[in-house]
């Protein structure tokens, strides 16, 4: 007897009922993102950061002076690993299964996130392309601004359920909808 192993997203259990049309304020759960954790060896920090920011198909996310997340929604894990192994002085590990990537967008996104994170998200302070590790809904998360009204949040898989529920609760007054994207 053979066993079919199906890919199930950790948030599958949190989404039930009919998919309705999306509202302007929407939370997208990326079903299979590629997320690598990248660490720079001592004194190689600036060179590794530069290489990451110049890489194609990969979005770097700042965690600490010697640590980043390399996120991709377009290419596979193999290609990202190949690219990262070409960077001298960097160590990396695939964390795609250990992290959950959600994207929240819409005109009220800052009002929603103001109830989830304790830092200033004004575009002059937290600019487009900026990313940082912070507490989001009491969970350690990496939040990045990818557009004027668009943020990407990366949370550990085990905390994704509670963060998701809380984001939806905070977005309720703004009619936040949710759904998977492939």
């Amino acid at each position: 007897m053979s066993i079919n192993l199906l890919h199930r997203h950790v948030l599958d259990d949190h989404i039930s009922g009919f998919e309705t049309d999306t509202n302007p304020n929407h939370l997208s759960i990326i079903r299979r993102p590629v997320i690598f954790s990248v660490l720079a060896h001592e004194s190689r920090e600036t060179a590794v950061a530069e290489a990451l920011w110049n890489a194609e198909d990969v979005a770097p996310r700042f965690c600490s002076p010697s640590e980043w997340l390399a996120v991709s929604r377009t290419v596979g894990a193999g290609m990202v690993a190949d690219m990262l192994s070409g960077i001298a002085g960097a160590s990396f590990v695939d964390q795609s299964d250990g992290r959950v990537l959600v994207e929240i967008s819409g005109p009220s996104v800052r009002a929603i996130l103001a109830k989830c994170v304790a830092i200033d998200l004004h575009p002059e302070v937290f600019e487009e392309g900026h990313s940082a590790a912070m507490l989001c809904c009491h969970a350690e998360a990496n939040v990045a601004r990818t557009g004027a009204d668009r943020f990407e949040i990366i949370v550990p898989r085990s905390l994704a359920g509670s963060v998701f529920e809380e984001l939806m609760e905070m977005g309720r007054e703004h009619a936040l909808t949710r759904g998977f994207v492939d």
């Binding site: 304790a118 830092i119 200033d120």
Partner: peptide, 11 residues
């Protein structure tokens, strides 16, 4: 110095 102004709960 790395992250900017943060609340004490993060520390």
């Amino acid at each position: 110095p790395h992250c900017g102004t943060r609340p004490k709960e993060e520390f």
